[in-house]
Each structure stands twice: as C-alpha cells, then as structure tokens.
Design a protein around this nucleic acid. Structure first.
Lengths: 243, 243
DNA sequence: TGCAGAAATTGGTTGGACCATTGAACCACT
DNA sequence: AGTGGTTCAATGGTCCAACCAATTTCTGCA
C-alpha cells in the first residue's frame, strides 16, 4: 500500500519530511479526513528518527493541516499540496474588547469586498444556495426568538464561497473561530445580533440583482450594527474586562 | 435529547509549557530579539522532558514567534503575551497567477479600509511620517527610473501603522512576504508598478485632508493598476505557468 | 596585542523505552 | 440479538541518554 515514500537526504530534515509527506498525500490522493501512515512507519520509510517525524507533524498540526488522535492515528484536516504557502498570524490580546473591535474592522473590509465580488460572480446555483441559507436563518430567527448564530454564520459562509476566492472564507473563518468564546457569552447583551437581522435579506437582494455597490453598502451597514452591539455590551460591563 | 456535552480536555503538556514560557517572557519583560533560556534549562526547570520543550518551541517557531539558531540559542522574533490567539492560514497553490490575483483581492479590501481608517485617525505625527516615506519613495522613483519597490512598501506600511489597527500590517505583511518571490521577477513586465505611482500622492493628500472616502477611492484605483499590470504580465507569458 | 585552535555551549538528531488512549475482537450474561 | 465488561494490539505522548553540528567563548602561543 505505501510503497512510495522514498528515503530522505540532505539537511533540514523536518522540512524534507514535510515535503515527502506532501508528495505522499498527492500520490495517494488523500483528502480531508484521510489517515496518513503511523509515525513509526514514516520514521522507518523515510530513514529518519521518529522524533524528527514528530517535529514535522507538530508543525503541520500547528498550521491546522492535520489532527493527531492518540491511540488512533494522524488524520488530514485540510487539503495539502507540495506548493503550499503559509501565513501564520498571531493576534496579541485578542480576547478583550479592543481586540474584538480590531478583528471587526478587518471583517468589515473583507465582508464588504466578498459581498461585492459575490454580486458580480455568483451564478444561479450559488444565488439559490445563498437564498436557501437565508430562509433557514430567518426561520430559525422567528422560532427561536433571535438565537440564530449558527444559521447566521452559514449564511455568511455561503457568500464567501460564492465570491470565487477561498481566501475570504479562510481568513474570516479563522477570525470567527478566534473569538467564538466571546460569542458564547455576548457581553450581557441579550438581543445580540437583533439589529443586524434585516440587512441579511437586503444583502441577498443586491447579490441576486448583481449589484456589487449595493451589496457592499448593505454589508457595511450590517457590520456597523454589530459594532454598535459590541460597544453597547462593553458599556454595560465597564468592569471585569481587565481583572 | 441532545444535551450539549463538550469534549473533555485532559492532557496538554506542551501547551502548558508554552503558557509557562509566555509567563516567563512577560515576567522578564523580553521583547523581540530577546534570548530565552536553553532547552535543557527549560526542561529541567519545568520538570518536563527536553523533547516536550522542543515540540512546544517548534510550534512557536512555526508561528513565526521565535527563531532557533543552532549553537547560539533561541530568540524572540515578535512580542508574545499569555493571551495570544493564532490564525494560521495556508494558501494552496499560491505561486501561480490565480493565487496572486486572489491575494490581491484580499489586499484591495484591506488597503482601502486601512487608508480610510488612517484618514480618520492619523494625527499630525503620523501624517508627517507618511509624507516622509512618500518623499523618499518619489525620490527613489525618479533617480532609479521606477525601481522603488522597497520604498513603496515602506510607504504603505506607514499607512497601515497609522490606521490604529495592527492587524492590517500583520495580515498584509504576511501576504507580501508570501509572494515576494514573484515580486522580484515581475512576470516579464519591465515597468511593473509604474502606473500605480501617481496614486501614492493622491492617497496621501486624502489622508492629510482627513477624507476617508477619498482615501478609500484612491487606494482602490492604485490596486486596480497593480491588477492590470499583473494581467498584462500573465498575458505576456501564457506559457510556463502550468508547464 | 592579535589571532588560531581548543573547549564549552546550544540547538538538531537518534534510538530505545515506557505510558495513556483508542478501537476492535472476544466473551459472558441476559 | 443485545448489553456490558475484558483483553489486547496499535498509536500517539512522554521520557531518557546519548551523539552530531553549528556557534560562541576561552586559551595560549607568537
């Protein structure tokens, strides 16, 4: 089964290990969820120490490319290719109010651009998909009295996907996951996200009408309401923010 | 019946090491360039194996937080704090034309937003600094007949810094460094970047006049010229892109 | 004093060992 | 058939004790 995997040469061992592994993944056509060989197998086949294999895998794990499950194995979490470029970002002090506002400023820029691009590029299939997510979200909003964060998020994701540029979803998803811990405790604001609700449909209408400028404007309005909610929440607290 | 039961978190050895290290960095007030203890010292003090220390440091190295020099030591490359959040991005196939265009779409969104924010927030000191970089760039452009990529980049960086949100510089710098190899060989277009030259000053004028909408519009024009240059370069080749 | 070579320091790698968790196979009992 | 418990091999996590390679520091000779 694993006859590929030629031995390693030259220095920079762990980088070479990763390169070989990327080639192996391509060779075996492994996708997300796929299981890659045991650390011991890799160490033997690549003629390197198991520790070296572990350091290489640790790098990939840090980049979110693989997931290691003790007792089970190592599994791919994303598509990998030999010509990948990495862009690790670290956000210092991202879990206070200032950090949240900063990520929102990034999201405002990206959300507006994604909506505009989507209005230009989305075909009928993509528009139908977005509308489907919008209907689900509105339904959840009605029945559960406002708690529709999961469906809301899926609606936005469908827009990012229809933008034709996977980077939008990657970046915004990373940020979303980043402060998700805060989303669980919405700063004491009970009706968090209520104000943004109507703009979801206006954004969709602009996209369906292939009106990029309109979509951009509506997206900006939506983010503005979120920022207002956030400021309101911060004003509610004014304590326990910094100990 | 779907009671939400979050997965339990038991072992987290190397994460604990990183937490301790972050605390140490804060305690000792170490900044970029600072030297942190030996792996052997850390292993002894933290009562863990040196292997565990190495895995932890490998993570930080992968995130660009730290640099390891064999025979010398391990040095900080960026400010670290105990409450950091990581956002690793991987761009598959980022070194072809499509990948470059996608990063440019991200940069367009961020560049415009940063310019607008800068126009609102920049004080006199920041505006002076930007103008200084602009003068340097224009001078280099004149004397070296267009080759001013380094000075051009510093001008843009000064704008990101004055935006009041360090995330802009972080994200765009990461992308810049990412495809810097392409910037060196501008696809055969000799006068790459010439068309974007005049917009640098118009952007600055809008910022100095605290005109966010104008700054955003000029930034969009600038990126548009870069995109045109890129498309022109791709048309020049039409070969050796996918062999 | 200046500088080449030895010695110590430090990250990189190796091999081997053991632990903790997982998952499949097996078994007893209902 | 199904439920629950046990065993056991596979696998990632950790540890240890070396040695290698690059770098820095010290030393002693000219």
């Amino acid at each position: 089964m694993t006859d590929f995997l030629p031995p390693i040469q030259t220095t920079a061992r762990d980088d070479a290990v990763l390169k070989a592994l990327a080639g192996f993944v391509r060779q075996e056509a492994l996708g997300p969820g796929g299981k890659l060989p045991t650390e011991r197998i890799l160490a033997e086949r690549l003629k390197v120490s198991r520790n070296t294999v572990r350091e290489a895998l640790t790098r990939w794990e840090g980049l979110g490319l693989v997931e290691r499950r003790q007792g089970s194995g190592t599994y791919l979490k994303a598509a990998v290719s030999p010509d990948m470029l990495h862009m690790p970002l670290t956000l210092a002090g991202g879990n206070d109010f200032t950090g949240l506002m900063r990520t929102l400023e990034i999201r405002r820029a990206l959300e507006a651009e994604a909506a505009a691009l989507c209005a230009v590029r989305a075909g009928k299939a993509e528009i139908d998909e977005i509308e489907r997510k919008l209907d689900i979200m509105e339904e959840a909003f009605r029945t559960r009295a406002g708690m529709s964060s999961e469906e809301d998020w899926e609606f936005h994701q469908s827009i990012y996907r229809a933008s034709g540029n996977p980077l939008f979803e990657q970046i915004i998803s990373a940020m979303h996951e980043l402060f998700h811990r805060f989303w669980e405790h919405p700063l004491g604001v009970r009706d968090f996200g209520h104000a943004s609700f109507p703009y979801h449909r206006t954004i969709f209408d602009c996209i369906a009408a292939h009106d990029p400028d309109g979509a951009r404007a509506e997206a900006l309005k939506l983010i503005a309401t979120v920022e207002d909610d956030l400021k309101r929440g911060a004003a509610n607290l004014k304590l326990s923010d910094r100990k």
